[in-house]
Every structure is written in C-alpha cells, then in structure tokens.
Simulated assay, not measured.
Amino acid sequence: MTRLLLRYRRILVLSTALLLAFVLMTLQARSGGSVALTAKQILLTSISPFLRMMTKSVDVTTMVWNEYVDLRRVRRDNQLLREEVRQLRVELGELRETALEHARLSRLLQLDERVETKAVVARVIGKDTTNWFRSILINIGTNRGIRRHMAVVTNEGLVGRVVEVTALSSRVQLITDPESAVGVLIQRSRAIGVAAGSQDGAIRVEYLPLMADVAVGDRIITSGMGGIFPKGIPVGQVVRSSRPTNATLFQLIEAQPYTDFSSLEEVMVLTRPPASGLPWAREEPSP
C-alpha cells in the first residue's frame, strides 16, 4: 500500500488540491463568511509550493525540448554542410584535373601548329607494366588514319613509334625499349649515331665514332635517317660519355630521355611527315 501511495503521490496531491478548491468554492458560494476565507488561505498556502514546482517543471521541460529540437536541427545542418563540402572537394578535384589536362592538350596543340604537319592527339589508355613501360596503348587506330611505323611525340620530345594497330587502338613502342632503334645526331657537333633503350630506362647511343665530339649535356635529336622519325625531334640529353681504352671503335654514350614516360597521359601521332626538318632542331638546349 505504501509503495502504491508513493508511486501515485503526485496524482493524489493534485487530486486533493482540486478537491479542496472545489470545496472552497462551494463554501464561498453558500456562506461567503470567514470560514471560507480561512479555508481559501490555507489551501493557497498548501498548494503554492506544488504550483511553483509544477511551473518550474514545465519551464525546464520546455527548455530541454527546445534544446533537443535545436540539437537535431544543428546535426541535420551539420550533415548537410559535410555533404556539401564533400561535393565541393570532388568538384574542385575535377576542376584541377580538367585544368591540368587542358594545359597538356594546349601544349600539344601548340606543338601541332609548330611542326607544320598533320598530327592526331591521342590519350594513353594502357601501359606495358611487365616490361618497364616499354610500350603504351593509345585510344586511336585505323579509325583515325593511324598506321604502323608512325612517329609518336609529346611537347617534350620523342616517345616512340606505332608497332601495332587495330580499329580503335594502337600500341606504341617506346624509345626506351632495348629493341628500339632511332637514328640520332648530337645537335652541337652533328655526330651521327643510333639510340636504343636499356633495362634501366636510359638511352644508349651506339655507333658514335671514337673521336666524335660529344660532351655531357649535349642535346640529342633525331637525324631523319631510316624514314620513320622526322629530323629534329628532341630525344634526350647526354649524361655520360666515355672512350674505351680497348680496341672498341665507338664511344659509350648514355642519355636521359626528355620525355617523362612515367607520367605520360596524352601523345601526338605524326600521321604525315613534314616536308623539312622539325622546328625543334632550331631550339637551343635548355640550361
């Protein structure tokens, strides 16, 4: 019984207060005397703490509810802001990538105007990772007039030549392939040799006469001999030159390619050789 009273004590107190109020109003209506006034004062004195507590409870409940509603609204707004930030970051990344691609294509198009020949821009869609990037796959083929043995370049210099062609793609052999051979000359001294790839990604220049004038830093360009690569395309820069002391008739020359094959994304295929040497041949070596 005691537990039941404790459990419903608030309801009992409120019910008692309401009952007393009803009784008070009845007495006041009937007698209007001092008894009713005294009972009224006693009732007001007894229920005032309870009413103040109820008022305070209602205020606290209202405040907590408003804070809860505000908190849910803040969480929702926070989620929306986070999603908006994520989308803006994605768009910013896409814009940066578009800007970089536009810059690369602009350099290729400027090169197309300089070489005064017919050329087609292609995107690199695959690399031969099993052979140290000795070949790449581009996204154009016979549908764009591509044929075997066409030269492939970038604004930096020579990339290689087309070795396989399908309707929609082509494979390009890089100049770093040990099986590749490119007729080259030292731009400063005009000494002629043949450039071939190596396992470490550098270029070896072979068949340079032992007494040819070659120095570290010399610029190497295509010689135009062989009928595949037009004359004047930058190939690389001499990084090591030595003259063997044995009976060898040729120098040992190693060069670093101008083209960065690890970051190759777009290239240009020369579909029609120029009538004369390319304008690259008239450029001075970079300091």
Rank of each mutant, 00 (worst) to 15 (best):
173 Q>D: 06
157 G>N: 09
159 V>R: 09
153 V>Q: 10
172 V>N: 07
173 Q>N: 05
175 I>G: 06
176 T>G: 05
130 T>H: 07
178 P>H: 07
170 S>G: 07
154 T>R: 08
157 G>D: 05
138 I>L: 12
178 P>F: 06
155 N>F: 04
176 T>D: 05
173 Q>H: 04
138 I>R: 05
176 T>E: 06
164 E>R: 15
133 F>L: 14
148 R>Q: 11
154 T>V: 02
175 I>C: 10
130 T>W: 02
178 P>Y: 04
147 R>F: 10
134 R>Q: 12
156 E>G: 00
169 S>Y: 09
161 R>E: 12
134 R>S: 11
172 V>K: 10
177 D>R: 01
165 V>F: 04
142 T>L: 03
138 I>C: 10
161 R>F: 12
141 G>N: 09
139 N>K: 12
172 V>W: 01
170 S>H: 13
131 N>C: 03
131 N>H: 14
142 T>R: 15
130 T>S: 14
157 G>L: 06
133 F>P: 00
178 P>E: 03
178 P>N: 03
166 T>E: 15
163 V>A: 04
181 A>Q: 13
141 G>L: 07
150 M>A: 08
134 R>D: 08
146 I>W: 02
144 R>D: 06
139 N>V: 00
138 I>K: 11
133 F>I: 15
179 E>D: 14
132 W>N: 13
177 D>N: 10
179 E>V: 02
158 L>P: 10
